[in-house]
Nucleic acid binder design. Structure first.
Lengths: 203, 203, 203, 203
DNA sequence: GACTAAGCGAGACGGTACGTCGCGTCTTAAA
DNA sequence: TTTAAGACGCGACGTACCGTCTCGCTTAGTC
């Protein structure tokens, strides 16, 4: 008469999940977010569509999941180099390198439009990806302030925008290559600003 | 059966074109690039799908056309204020205002992913939209150099990235509002950088 | 992820199939094969276009399916009347009556051009429709031979062509009505031929 | 005041007409009635669509025009061979040969469905194509009656159906090849019938 | 020689239907 | 209860042709 509560049935399998993510990665690499379809992932992974929907709300969600895994594997703390400029350049360059050499760049290009349409997706992206970067940046700037390299009241938010705004501008809009000396200039601009102070000499 | 070249056939009707663009604008305003479909534009404009395809290759192309018309109407030269910082702030704020108050912002968000997938689209966007901004910026910086406000060798490309990178970073990624004092900070950072010179004091 | 074969998934629903066939019949009756469109069948039946395509390759295939159902319902064995001529006349008249009173005539007219273009369709038609007639005819001729009414070596193929060639000639080309005494003449011609024998008196 | 009637303007050019027919023939040969489109004919002939529509109501009409030209070129009277059976066999074989070796067969297969849908087309076909055959057949049967080879009251209509019904049955429905001895059998059947008389021996 | 019809090419246009892709939901049977 | 399989309704895609419609030129007459 089914009075029991404890029936648990078949357990979700980790292999299934991995198969899905792997297929997603392969498709993403070959065709970008554009070519990513649930149908395609199901076919390539041998997993049923239903199973995928049980775990992710949309293909964007799925792409983001892949991206997050990627970010987590790339995590790497920047150590104290005793030189703020060098630390920042290394930091920005690390981000650039990931964008250039992994799926990250293509996935970002494909996902960015979805952030505006899907707040939940945007939230997840910021929480998992941006936050880490901001934390890292905070550590670097704290050291910089301690050393007296930059103003006490330098705003982390501005720092982030000045350093990475140009990076994504190139990735999304201008299509210019993201190379090394490019990072230097962004860092120099930020340093000039942060050293001088907000109310610094004008005109 | 004839050998002439000059036969021209029926000319594309401007009314038809306008009807399509207007319908596109309406849908874009209501539902964004996401909700834009050729089918929908055809239905709303009373124009046949085929006619739309005859003029634009894709809905992204169509959205871009709308955006370009918008930009062309907004064109406005910045006059000499005698103050570079003020001119730049006004310049950036003008862009921000357009993003905030017209369809431009939403359309950009929706279109940005397509630039990576469709080089032709990206090329058109840069040519029609970015180029104008760069020209304008050039004029401002020329005046600034003439006045001695910034270094002779300041790079227009960098200027563009430093000023607008943060703007689009907010629009695309962080979702933070694009308000007034935001423009000031980006301009101050650029000015600090451009005044100091590239090989300026380090550490 | 699994290796089994036996998963069966959701089964095609007979209601869906019947809805499609019924809508097809209605359209066929009203507008003929000419007016039959998958789009129309989908609309009238409330079934999705894709579902129709999942079951039939083309509208011709669909029309044939309807025709086959019709034929299967009309199947009716001719019993021994003790008189070959009477049996054949009844047989031909039965076919004529179906062509005259059901959709069969119109559908055949509309389908006939497709047989030449679509061998698969032609094959299906012959298998399902012609074969039955030939079987029936075989039984009648066997009885005729047993009675000594016709030659032992009368060819079933020729019989079929002599009896039904004129019928379809009228249906397809001359447009003359298919009435009763018409069948008699075709049967008489065949009987004269089959009784006389192939090498019979000439000139 | 336009009282005149006789303004004539530019005359339709025969070259244009021929170019259209030639293109039609080529397409018909390659792709059959199925692949025949006004658009295609216009493209291949270099003639404007409008010009084609000015002369023919539909692609079927156009195909029929081609077929009629073909028939007119093939016209050939059968001479008195002194032997009715031989004359009929030659007559049927001539028709078969045309169907087998020219476009006629394919065009007939493609057009036959349109006869039912387009009475005007059917009328034109009968008038231009069938009529000639019936006239020819009449001459042969007149000679046969004169010779006493067949009954006085043999019906020309029946003759036509008995002789050509089987031919078109093969062409349209059974797909069996139209070869030589096939004609003999149809003729023999007709002869047996026509010699014996309608009210001939039964049972 | 100017005027006036038509013929003609080119090609835009509104349509209808095509056949396909992918979505997200559902049903079924097996694990 | 999860899973693979796959049917299903749905919305949109981009394409093929349809038949009609300007448009501007060419070709013949007629006045």
């Amino acid at each position: 008469m089914q009075t029991e509560v404890a029936h648990r049935g078949r357990q979700p399998s980790p292999e299934t999940e991995e198969a899905i993510l792997e297929a997603t990665r392969e498709i993403l690499a070959k065709e970008g977010v554009r070519g990513l379809t649930i149908e395609g992932v199901a076919a390539r992974s041998g997993v049923a569509k239903t199973t995928i929907y049980r775990r992710w709300r949309s293909k964007h969600d799925l792409a983001l999941a892949v991206l997050i895994v990627m970010v987590e594997q790339q995590v790497q703390s920047s150590h104290d180099l005793g030189d703020t400029r060098a630390e920042l350049i290394a930091f920005v360059n690390r981000a650039i390198k990931i964008l250039n050499t992994t799926l990250m760049g293509r996935v970002m290009q494909g996902l960015v439009s979805d952030f505006a349409a899907d707040p939940e997706l945007a939230r997840a992206f910021r929480e998992k990806v941006v936050t880490r970067r901001v934390e890292e940046l905070t550590r670097i700037l704290d050291r910089a302030i301690a050393r007296g390299n930059i103003r006490r009241d330098a705003d982390i938010e501005i720092a982030n925008e000045l350093l990475f705004g140009p990076v994504y501008y190139r990735l999304f809009l201008s299509g210019k290559p993201l190379n090394k000396d490019f990072a230097e200039r962004a860092v120099d601009a930020f340093m000039a600003y942060a050293r001088a102070g907000r109310g610094a000499p004008r005109k």
